[in-house]
Design a protein around this nucleic acid. Structure first.
Lengths: 217, 217
DNA sequence: ATAAAATTTTAGACAAAACTAAATATTAGT
DNA sequence: ACTAATATTTAGTTTTGTCTAAAATTTTAT
């Protein structure tokens, strides 16, 4: 597997996850910041290698083996993120680009030992689950904050958007994974929420709420 | 810098280090396991970028900036080796290939933090010095075991050949860095040595001796 | 000193992964 | 159902790093 092939597999995985449908050429092109024609070329190659199922004009879908490959890359990415935060004191908004490079390192032993060093973590610094070696997830039930009913409280366990600007916003507002969040009130006009975290009450917009996962107590 | 450019810079560095002379195209080709014509092409590119000094038919030599680049790669390689051995329990004969990949990861912060995590080591698991961020070495005086005079004793501080077979041989014979070695006798016929390590006396060939560095007490 | 041998460079090609422009297929709007 | 708009693929180039074969230069050996 070349670096580029791995990037495509990961892109197709992320675009297709959840939905049970195939991924369009254009969507992959946008994700990969490349042109649709380049995507077609690469998809053909991946298809010949049996990593994706592809019929002209019908989009792509990962095959069994493509899925395994994707999960192994995601596993590596997330373990490296944990390493960067737990062992090297990176902030959670600084890890993405480095993990993006580290995920391509080829050594099964390296990843097994890293997993061990980190104490077999189940989630990465953004609360995303780390697939096991066998490609299995912790399917913990989690809810977007903007979708839970008024009065609900729960543990903040993850973010949907893990871009640096959003994570920095959370830091600035002292919202961290592990905090208990309670939804006090909802404003009908703009769907903003009044929430309580550690005795503090404040208002967050719908955009913020729709990117925070909580586990309902 | 592409991956390939970095590999060439490193190869030229290793071939030229010590000697104060330029490196031949053929030598680089052999080291890189590629053809001389490919080397010529790459050298031209590196020369345009100011990383090497090159005149047709006269071999190459790293420029100031090429040297800095090489040292930064060597620093990364050796720090990762320490990480693999100290933190992930790799054996010293298993680290090379993985470090070869890790050395290309681009993040200054990553390397600084790694250095800190490891306690600012001065040498890698094979006893090779780790350049500082500024590209400075610990120029500890070390001697090849086959070159010291009879009766000399000292600390085993490094290996010249760090290939897996040689390192495995040392493990099997319970010779490790940090051991005190004394040269008891030398056989004129084949230049083999009778040495003493931890009360044990045994004979090693000239080939072995010429790949062990000691620091004379 | 010069011919033979070895080394190095040039020229021309190829594979991977990207691109642009043009052609083709699908989807959507009326 | 048919046309317009959109999405996708094809064809033909480009760039990077490699290769082979041939030409040029340097070194070695008589």
């Amino acid at each position: 597997m070349t670096l580029s092939e791995e990037d495509y597999i990961k892109a197709i995985y992320h675009l297709g996850k959840g939905k049970n449908t195939s991924v369009s050429t254009n969507a992959v092109a946008e994700q990969m910041k490349t042109k649709p024609s380049s995507v077609t070329d690469m998809i053909k190659k991946l298809s010949e290698k049996g990593l994706v199922n592809y019929k002209k004009y019908q989009g792509v879908r990962l095959s069994e083996s493509g899925e395994r490959t994707a999960l192994s890359i995601v596993r590596k990415h997330r373990l490296w993120e944990v390493f960067l935060v737990d062992k090297l004191d990176f902030a959670w908004d600084e890890v993405h680009d480095v993990a993006e490079q580290l995920e391509h390192i080829k050594s099964e032993k390296l990843i097994d030992k890293l997993d061990q060093l980190l104490g077999f973590p189940k989630v990465d610094p953004h609360g995303d689950p780390i697939p096991s070696k066998e490609g299995l997830f912790n399917k913990a039930s989690k809810h977007l904050l903007n979708e839970v009913s008024l009065g609900t409280s729960g543990l903040c366990i993850g973010v949907k958007d893990s871009s640096a600007p959003f994570l920095k916003f959370l830091d600035k507002n002292r919202i961290a994974l592990g905090d208990t969040i309670k939804v006090i009130d909802k404003e009908e006009f703009d769907d903003s929420l009044l929430i309580e975290i550690n005795e503090r009450q404040f208002r967050i917009s719908q955009q913020i709420a729709s990117n925070l996962f909580i586990q309902i107590s």
